[in-house]
Amino acid sequence: MALSLYASPLERSWYYLHRVLCGGVFIFLVAPTLVIIPLSFNSEPFFTFPMPGLSLRWYEELFLTDRWVGSFYNSIFVAVMVTLLSTVLGTLAALGLSRPKFPWRTAVMSLLISPMVVPVVITAVGIYFFYADARLLNTFTGLILAHTTLATPFVVITVTATLIGFDHSLTRAAASLGAPPVTSFFKITLPLVLPGMISGALFAFITSFDEVVVALFITSANQRTLPKAMFSGINQEISPTITAAATVLTLFAIVMLTTVELLRRRSERLRGSRKAAAVV
């Protein structure tokens, strides 16, 4: 959108106003995340600039205090289990849903992604009542199962998306050449849906790793996760350690975002090259 040479002064000023406004919005979007990173290296427990000195004391507290380290491990453990469970369940379901002539596809799809739609507080209350009866309150099992319901929709959606262009004659060709279903799954289907699976798995991981509402409802101090520790860190006293935790989580997010983006590009490229091959 370059400004044309014969633009009127009004257009010209409007053009620059638009640019300035957009610049402001971008600052609004990114600044909060960027401000917190330098503050995590502050040597004093204040949140003000200029900082009196630099130190790693908040990282020390984050990585060396039992409270924070314990919650970090808990989060990783729960998130890994959730990722495994939801990736398997979600991928299977997506494979089934993408078969041609799947009955009541829209209804089943709505059911499977409904945990994404319902406000998380309502999910948390429902699960809380349910777990109170099922004796799953304050257990890791309970937390993992609850997070899995929240995470699977992401896997279903990403894997279904990679399967949209899936050519079913490939598996049929494999079968006609004598491959048993298991072989054709591992040799043909899996490599094609793998990018979607990995993206979905990352989404599932981050869903569980960031989740706080359900964790607040159904866990005790023994299953304290990182977001739960951060929540009480902000809610009760604003300890500067949360800035260090926030920085670590942001780096995490950047790595995730990059991976998903690279995977998406790869998948697009593969699909593009397949199209090109079809033309040839």
Partner: peptide, 20 residues
């Protein structure tokens, strides 16, 4: 730049606003 906050934890962003 639009997607980065989308991916950062909700708690991190809320923390950032508390601090700011």
């Amino acid at each position: 730049m639009v997607l980065l906050p989308f991916w950062t934890s909700l708690l991190v962003r809320t923390t950032a606003w508390v601090v700011l």
